[in-house]
Nucleic acid binder design. Sequence first.
DNA 1: TCAATAGTGTCTGTCAGACAGTATGTG
DNA 2: CACATACTGTCTGACAGACACTATTGA
Lengths: 267, 267
Amino acid sequence: MSARSRVPGEQDFLAAYHPADFPVFAVTVDMALFTVRAGVLCTLLVQRAEHPYLGYWALPGGFVRAGESVEAAARRELAEETGTPFAGHLEQLRTYGDPGRDPRMRVVSVAHVALAPDLPDPVAGGDAGSARWWATEDMRVPGGTGVPGAPDAGGADAEVPELAFDHGQIVADALERVRAKLEYTTLATGFVSEPFTLAELRRVYLAVWGSAPDLGNFRRKVLGTAGFVVPAERSPDPAAGLAGGRPPLLYRRGSASALRPPMLRPG
Amino acid sequence: MSARSRVPGEQDFLAAYHPADFPVFAVTVDMALFTVRAGVLCTLLVQRAEHPYLGYWALPGGFVRAGESVEAAARRELAEETGTPFAGHLEQLRTYGDPGRDPRMRVVSVAHVALAPDLPDPVAGGDAGSARWWATEDMRVPGGTGVPGAPDAGGADAEVPELAFDHGQIVADALERVRAKLEYTTLATGFVSEPFTLAELRRVYLAVWGSAPDLGNFRRKVLGTAGFVVPAERSPDPAAGLAGGRPPLLYRRGSASALRPPMLRPG
DNA sequence: TCAATAGTGTCTGTCAGACAGTATGTG
DNA sequence: CACATACTGTCTGACAGACACTATTGA
């Protein structure tokens, strides 16, 4: 950027520049926000209160504002939905820009994946008529089979949301991204709040993959990977004593992010 | 999509809809196109003939047209640069949309990664002043160290292009994507033209990673992975006899796309 | 016969899958 | 004590790293 000023004539050019005839787009962000609640992988959806797709469920999102970066727009939307500055993991997924995906006008949406530990029920208000967590397993998603084998949140005849726009495809792509990153990164720690036990961390894999790695092998992999987790002080927490059994050791997230070699999904 | 028409009032709403006051963007595609030429990983750049960044080198790309999908725009740009419909691998990389990345107006660019075997020198003409292949190793890229150990195309004091916009960052991200995908997919076969030898395929890894896997282990992995490559008929090609030595077996791309477990980079 | 390229065999360590066992808490 | 949860040990097979070896061509 700093080297640009040395091009002769550029300032004059820019001063005289007027946008030419190119197509005009709206740019939005859509957030596939995941959390694990009671052992079930959940996705946040909002029910549309306006046309098009009135009454359908959609990913939270909105327009990118003038002067606002795409990532800033994503964080703003997350903060609006959760009521606090977003502290979890956020990454870009991909951009969906087919003509006709929004019947109003030409919109390209930069979809993101976000995840955080055990988020509360969404705050009321906002531009959405209503917002709630849905078990990702229950969402009818293109090519997706849900999460077979995971604890069932709503039974076989649970409600299923009808998704607006191409948001079913976005959820499917986001879910596959999260499943894949659990294999070769330490992303799973982003689903648990600190301090956490290894059993809690393993239940994240169960919720996301639908099956958990063998207990012993899982412990060996996690504890044998430098920086995956670090021991935490044993809290004098008596509230955890609701279940009889040996009290578990506690851990916090480590500094490592990659897993080499990866932890492969069973099956 | 077909279920939408059942929402009462939607057609009326859309008929009366006028775009509200939201920011207006231009949407472009930028193509990080890779090929291997004479054992060297190369990237196509075009020299800008206009402000801003006049004289700087940029990734080929352009505006997405009205009614055109983002992927169609990417394929159109590739065809314009190479002179033929693009037959290689194409995938979306990520979207770059920081305000200020283009001084003229607000632009979000959907960057793509493309690769193909041994592409020829670019065709003259087009909107670019000139286009040429650059050794990816020679490109000054944020956080990048080039490809140490690979055959050197231009010597230690080779020319280095100065990149326009944030294209240095895009090239760095694209290179890392390709390097990573060589580990867990069969993407490397997209760099060689059929039929190919295992030595040629291995030289792809050398060019992209800067170091090649051990010969014996590489053959074991490739031939032991069902669908990575399939044997081709031994061509009666006498032109290949320019070098003394045992004539190699020939292969074609197989149907497999994933490598489980992956082939890890050395180092 | 030599040089040059292609291809094979094998030893070894690492690590994941499978699963049986031990430890430590509560009622 | 039984019981529940947490944690450890170990056998085995798959596979990658390292490297020595054989094969087939042309000059």
